[in-house]
Design a binder for these strands. Structure first.
Length: 155
DNA sequence: GCCAACGTTGGC
DNA sequence: GCCAACGTTGGC
């Protein structure tokens, strides 16, 4: 069974347009330093899973595109790079603490489905992203929520 | 194991 | 830029 996800990114750092421009539209999703998000990548993500690409910390936060999972989880090299802002001296290369998956561009939505609009939509009320104080950068999404957001983007 | 202090996230 | 919510750290 295919799984569905929502992944946040700050467009100033890495936007859906940046993803589209990457070779093969593919980018290693590095820098995840939260255990819950890591465990989703490690335990539940599979190649071909569908992703809602969400822009956070910007003028109009919301879902802007669709991507897909393009690799199994593998060690995040930035954890071992002392020059990286994601460097973690406590991550042992023999037993990596942090992992990542490759994410591939699929589509930009015809329009942004904004966070405020999502909040007003009864069919989306259970989404983790709408729950109070949720800061998780990777959250599972129900297929019907995923489909509903795509439908909203087309209307 | 508790919990205060601290750093980060992210909407507004 | 503000600040509430949250996760992590580290002293005890």
């Amino acid at each position: 069974m295919k799984n569905y996800w929502l992944m946040k990114s700050e467009p100033d750092a890495f936007s859906i347009e940046d993803l589209e421009k990457r070779e093969n539209g593919t980018e290693p999703w590095d820098g995840i330093r939260n255990y819950q998000a890591r465990n989703f990548m490690r335990d539940d993500m599979k190649i071909g899973d569908a992703v809602l690409f969400y822009h956070s910390n910007c003028k109009t936060p919301g879902v802007v595109g669709v991507a897909e999972i393009a690799s199994e989880a593998y060690p995040d090299p930035t954890a071992f790079d002392s020059k990286s802002k994601y460097f973690d001296e406590k991550s042992d290369p023999e037993n990596p603490r942090w992992i990542l998956v490759d994410v591939r561009f699929v589509d930009k939505l015809p329009r942004t489905v904004s966070l405020s609009e999502m909040k007003e939509t009864a069919a989306l009320k259970d989404m983790k992203i709408l729950q109070r104080g949720n800061r998780l950068s990777i959250t599972p999404v129900a297929k019907k929520e995923f489909d509903h957001i795509l439908k909203m983007a087309k209307s």
